[in-house]
Simulated assay, not measured.
Amino acid sequence: MFFINRKIDAHLKQFMKLNIKNKIPVIILIKSNTNKIKSKVLSSNGKIKWEYENISAISCELSPMSIDALTEYPEVSFICYDYKGNLCLTNAHKIMGTNIINVYGLTGKNIGIGLIDTGVYPHPDLINKRNTIAYFKDLINGFDKPYDDNGHGTFLSGCIAANKYTTNIEGIAPDSSIYMIKAFDTTGKGFLSDVVKGIDILISMSSNTNLRIITLPFEFDISPIINPLELIIKTAISKNIIVVAAAGNNGPQSFSINCPGNIEEVITVGGAECSGNIKSCKVASYSGRGPTTNKITKPDVVMLSSNITSLSSDTTYLPGKSSHIASFYTIKSGTSIAAAFVAAYCAIMLEKTPTLTPKDMKSVVCLSTISLGENKYSQGKGLVTFT
């Protein structure tokens, strides 16, 4: 019966009831014969947005009747709504830069870190001493050179790989390389289909580049029966890529960690704030708390995330145009910062021991902590340290 089919995401059913005549963005997960399903989409006047290389799926726009009709095909396993996600960063309320001392003397050399974000501005601290931007792909507007019309991706890139060109601010892994996928727009919103495509691209690149880590500084409040984001993330991990995700900014209540931070195999990072030394550190009030709805203990660890100084962006800049940045630096807070720091930490650990698997790295990160005296659903194993 129409709208009752179990192959349809429950959230999608609500949109189908409200949009009988309008096309709806969806992701179709396919068991077999992708070409047949693509043909059916096109013959239903659907528009295909993305095809994926590393999971059997396509994203497209379809009418409710066409969605319902497609579920009758045995080749279709599930149809998921194309949700919008949010970045995990906020403006700071006071100025307090934080320097993290890397006692290992490692710099992340020859390690690539993928970021699914708002883009990256060609900031002097990222390109003048050494061009840390190894790759840029724009899934929103189609530009072929780096830019950032929001600033979030540039800020995190600075946390990872800033190189002290204009001042004394340096990322945790200044010799690492940034592989940036722009899947979030100027408002900090991004479609699930674009995020999955971004991870798909990075997985395909990993076999012939130095890309070893993917950072996911966002959250989707979704729980479909079959989750395409979870599928692509687990595919990445199966191909020996370390995945680091933010715990989100929905704390302090329990069960406030959304996808992808609620996936067991990823390294989920909550946020911490300090007023001077480690003894003063505590889990940030906004940091997402576990457990997850399927009773997984999350986050895995916490990292500094409040009132952090990093790189700013000229959000009006577009490739080929002149740039007029007002200030090279800004101060922000959020668990996406914590995730970026831990991703950079993973890079220096990989520089030291390149054979570490995602499972090994998760163990290393969890062991590199000190307890803040809070419960495991707030701090995980504790605060990641570099000592």
Rank of each mutant, 00 (worst) to 15 (best):
S177A: 12
S177W: 07
S177R: 13
I178M: 15
I181S: 02
A183K: 12
F184N: 05
T186M: 11
T187P: 00
G188A: 04
K189D: 09
G190S: 03
F191V: 00
L192F: 02
V195L: 06
V195M: 04
V196E: 01
L202H: 09
L202N: 02
I203E: 04
I203H: 06
M205D: 01
N208C: 01
N208K: 12
T209Q: 08
T209Y: 01
N210W: 05
N210M: 01
L211C: 03
L211N: 08
I213E: 08
T215V: 06
L216G: 03
E219W: 00
F220Y: 14
D221P: 00
D221Y: 06
I222P: 00
S223F: 02
S223G: 07
P224D: 10
P224H: 11
I225C: 05
I226A: 10
P228Q: 14
L229T: 10
I232S: 07
I232E: 04
I233P: 09
K234H: 11
A236D: 14
A236Q: 05
A236K: 13
I237C: 12
I237N: 11
I237E: 08
S238Q: 15
S238I: 13
K239I: 07
N240C: 11
I241H: 13
I242Q: 14
V243R: 10
V244R: 09
V244L: 07
V244W: 06
A245F: 01
A246H: 05
A247C: 07
G248S: 07
N249H: 07
N250Y: 11
N250H: 13
Q253V: 09
Q253I: 09
S254G: 02
S254F: 07
S254D: 14
S254T: 11
F255I: 00
S256N: 11
C259R: 14
C259G: 09
N262W: 00
E265D: 12
V266W: 09
I267F: 05
V269H: 04
G270N: 01
G271I: 05
G271W: 07
E273M: 14
S275F: 15
G276P: 02
G276Q: 12
K279Q: 15
K279L: 15
S280C: 09
S280F: 01
C281N: 04
K282V: 12
V283W: 03
S285K: 13
S285E: 13
G288W: 09
